[in-house]
Design a protein around this nucleic acid. Structure first.
Lengths: 260, 260
DNA sequence: CGATTCCTTGAGGCATCTCAAGGCAAGTGG
DNA sequence: CCACTTGCCTTGAGATGCCTCAAGGAATCG
């Protein structure tokens, strides 16, 4: 295990040295209402007035380097994190050192909601590439929510979405075979890429075969073999982490075999 | 499939005929502050003033007969349900007719939180025995929450708890073998029984082998064989659905092999 | 250039699934 | 009350999909 993954990134807002050199530092105040991710992220579903109310939210932007942790399992829960750029994995660590990946988070998605239950983070979040996040103080968010029922609804809805997401994952883990699992995974990534304005058919996976395997409940060798099988079936073209879906219908079919 | 499971129980408060005969009808107003489940259910963690505020909540009590649905996947979401008595299963139905059980709910636990995300229930809830629930209108609950930040916190915490619960299930489905899965399941049931003042070592399972199997991601035959294996290991005494844990330590060990 | 990490592929083993048969308990109808 | 059905559980035997172990290739890094 790398030492980097054991170390939590500093809490304060720190534009990295190289960022200072080749670009203007990020503005001190970032507003939800002008954020390019506002249709995916926290403000999603809010009307004009409420989005402006969200602008009252003071939060820090932080850069997280690849391999660094945003938070660790067991750490005190204080912030909800919104991914601005980059990709994260959430995972639990088992007693014997193995990990179960519980999710991958992309731009506009939230991290840390599982910490509310006990006041401690129930999982760890690791950056899979250099990333940037907004750290929203939970207490402050709830304060703001008490002034707007719509904002309360949005927060509840986001948490419910997480529950629904995990339901489908349980279905996947509980009753699908290797090909169905990987097809479901790739179709999910594809949709999320599309929602972010990227190509739905060609993308770069940020996670390793082992991480995909942990997420899907299979060994890395099985993930690799299933990628190869999809290539032979002419559903994909794979070059390491670069994936091109050549037959979306075929993938859908592999997935649709069992799922609604 | 029985027709009963395809039919949703009526929405209005209906004391059943036989209930009217052999007992006084349930009171028209049920108060959270005097409920025997208040330490497990919605009021959990609230202080005196806020619990009394919860008493402003108007909700109906409903009886659900064994096999009947509280709600179906796809139905409009309007209520959060609190189990007063009885046991439920939540499940998703796959295209090919098979089902994935996503959880079992006991007295004091909440049902329906997955409906918030889209305004439609994402799963179905079926009573595994005659049961009674409180149907709490979600809009009304949120109205009340807008008057109390503590109540908001409690609702968020309950949703977060559901996320954490599903995390552990993912860990179970993703990286444990049959014995570990069943041990984890039985220990979980045992804890929840204990929290309700029942015996932690001897209880009656309300769900079938097939339902346990669906929940744990294994076939009913494997569940049955694993029960038998535990009996041979002198960890359990099993008679159909009646289970007596004779070695809690042994079960813990079967489970602890991998999990924190 | 060696060390390291990640990926791919092969061969064999094993845990779980599949298929099948039979037992038990509860319900039903004659 | 008995014969029959039905649902649920248990157990066995064989099949199989995924895992384990192992080797080697490709890319990255100091």
């Amino acid at each position: 295990m790398q030492t980097a993954t054991r170390h939590t990134a500093p809490l304060q807002f720190v534009p990295r040295e190289d960022a200072r050199r080749d670009a203007a530092p990020a503005p001190l105040r970032t507003l939800c209402s002008t954020c390019h991710l506002k249709d995916l992220c926290l403000p999603c579903g809010l009307n004009g007035t409420d989005i402006e109310r969200l602008d009252g939210l003071k939060f820090a932007r932080r850069r997280i380097k690849e391999g660094q942790a945003l938070y660790h399992e067991g750490e005190k829960f204080q912030f909800i994190y919104a991914v601005r750029s980059g990709t994260f994995k959430s995972h639990l660590t088992l007693k014997d050192g193995r990990e179960q990946v519980t999710g991958f988070q992309m731009a506009g998605e939230l991290l840390g909601l599982d910490g509310l239950a006990s006041g401690q983070h129930a999982s760890s979040a690791i950056a899979l590439e250099d990333a940037e996040i907004c750290a929203i103080p939970y207490a402050h968010l709830m304060e703001l929510a008490s002034t707007s029922t719509d904002l309360q609804h949005v927060i509840s809805r986001l948490m419910s979405r997480e529950i629904v997401r995990e339901h489908s994952l349980m279905m996947l883990l509980g009753s699908m075979n290797a090909e169905e699992r990987l097809a479901a995974f790739l179709l999910n990534i594809s949709q999320r890429m599309k929602a972010r304005g990227w190509s739905a058919s060609e993308f770069h996976l940020r996670m390793s075969r082992a991480e995909i395997g942990s997420y899907l409940g299979m060994k890395l060798e099985t993930v690799s073999r299933t990628f190869s099988a999809f290539q032979h079936q002419r559903l994909l073209e794979v070059d390491k982490k670069h994936v091109r879906i050549t037959s979306l219908e075929g993938l859908q079919q592999a997935f649709d075999m069992r799922v609604q």
